[in-house]
C-alpha cells in the first residue's frame, strides 16, 4: 500500500513537471504574441526607422531584420567553411586515433559551453587588436567563433553515427582515397549536415550578447562589411528600454518576428532530420 502511494506521489510529480514545461512554452508564445501581434504590421517589416521612430513615429525594423540576416548568413557561411572540414577530418582522418579524437571532442565540448557574452568581450578585444571598428565584419567574426563549436559538434554527432564514414575511413587510411571518401561521407550525411548548419544559423540569429560590442547599431541597412549593422535581438532590447509605449509594443512585435524566424528554422530542421533518421521520434 505504501509502495503504491509512493509511486503515485512521484508519478504526479512527473506529470506536474511535464505540464509545467509544456505550459511554460504556451505561456511564453501566448504572452508575446498577444502583446506583439497588435503592433505588427507591414510597415514594421518593410521600413527602416524614420526620424522620431524611437518616440513612436513611423518606421519599422527592416534594418534589424536585414542586419540579422546578413550577420547570420555571414557567420554561418564562415563557420561552415571552417567547421564542416574539421568535422570531416575528425571522422575520416582521425577516426583511428581515439586519443587525439577524444581530446579534440573534449576541447570542443569545453568551448561549446563558453557563454556568448565572453565571445562578445573577446571579439571586442580582437577588434581593437586588429584595428577594425564596430561593423558587420566584426560582428560576423565574433558570431562565427561563437557558433563554430556548436556547428562542429553537431556535424560530428551526425558523421559519427554514419557507418559509411567508418568504412570509408578504413579504406582511406593511406589518404589516397580521401577525396572520394569525403565526397561519399558528405553526400551520405548531407541532410544531417544541413540540419547542423540550420541549428547554427538559429543560434547566430538569436544571440545578442556576442554582437553587443562588435556589430554596432544603426538605423540604416549596411551596404558593406565595414558598416555597423543592427540586429533583431538588440533592436528588441533597445526598443524595450524606451519609455514610450508604442515603441515597447514594437519591441514585442519584433519579438514575434524573431520567434517566427526561429520557429521556421526549427520546423525546417525537424523536417530534414526526420527524413534523416527515420526511426527517431
Amino acid at each position: 500500500m505504501l509502495k503504491k502511494i509512493e509511486e503515485i506521489f512521484f508519478r504526479s510529480l512527473m506529470l506536474i513537471s511535464n505540464l509545467l514545461i509544456v505550459s511554460v512554452l504556451v505561456i511564453i508564445l501566448y504572452s508575446i504574441f498577444r502583446k506583439g501581434l497588435g503592433a505588427l504590421n507591414w510597415e514594421m517589416l518593410t521600413q527602416r526607422p524614420h526620424g522620431g521612430y524611437y518616440y513612436g513615429k513611423e518606421g519599422g525594423v527592416l534594418n534589424a531584420i536585414v542586419g540579422s540576416l546578413y550577420l547570420s548568413f555571414g557567420a554561418t557561411l564562415l563557420a561552415t567553411v571552417i567547421g564542416v572540414p574539421v568535422a570531416l577530418f575528425m571522422n575520416v582522418y582521425l577516426v583511428k586515433r581515439r586519443k587525439i579524437l577524444n581530446f579534440i571532442r573534449f576541447l570542443l565540448d569545453l568551448i561549446w559551453g563558453v557563454p556568448s557574452i565572453v565571445y562578445g568581450a573577446f571579439g571586442f578585444g580582437l577588434m581593437v587588436f586588429l584595428g577594425i571598428k564596430t561593423s558587420l565584419l566584426a560582428g560576423i567574426i565574433t558570431v562565427t567563433l561563437f557558433i563554430l563549436p556548436i556547428m562542429i559538434r553537431a556535424c560530428d554527432e551526425i558523421l559519427k553515427t554514419s557507418p559509411l564514414g567508418l568504412l570509408e575511413a578504413a579504406l582511406s587510411l593511406g589518404s589516397t582515397k580521401t577525396e572520394t571518401s569525403f565526397r561519399v561521407v558528405l553526400i551520405q550525411s548531407f541532410s544531417g549536415i544541413v540540419t547542423a548548419i540550420l541549428l547554427s544559423f538559429g543560434r547566430a540569429i538569436g544571440d545578442a550578447a556576442s554582437v553587443l560590442f562588435t556589430a554596432g547599431y544603426t538605423d540604416s541597412i549596411p551596404t558593406s562589411l565595414n558598416e555597423p549593422a543592427a540586429t533583431l535581438p538588440l533592436s528588441i532590447f533597445f526598443q524595450l528600454s524606451s519609455p514610450v509605449p508604442e515603441v515597447q509594443n514594437r519591441a514585442y512585435a519584433s519579438a514575434v518576428i524573431l520567434i517566427i524566424i526561429i520557429l521556421v528554422i526549427s520546423l525546417l530542421s525537424r523536417a530534414l532530420s526526420k527524413k534523416y533518421h527515420k526511426n527517431r521520434i
Partner: peptide, 30 residues
C-alpha cells in the same frame, strides 16, 4: 506513450531554440 513523445520533443526543441532576448521579453511581460 509514443504520441506524447511526439508532443514533448518538439516542445523541448522549441524551448531550446528560443533566443535569450525572447525569454527576457517574456520575463518582463509575465
Amino acid at each position: 506513450k509514443k504520441f506524447y513523445l511526439k508532443i514533448i520533443h518538439p516542445v523541448i526543441d522549441i524551448l531550446a531554440g528560443l533566443p535569450s532576448v525572447v525569454y527576457g521579453v517574456w520575463g518582463i511581460i509575465v
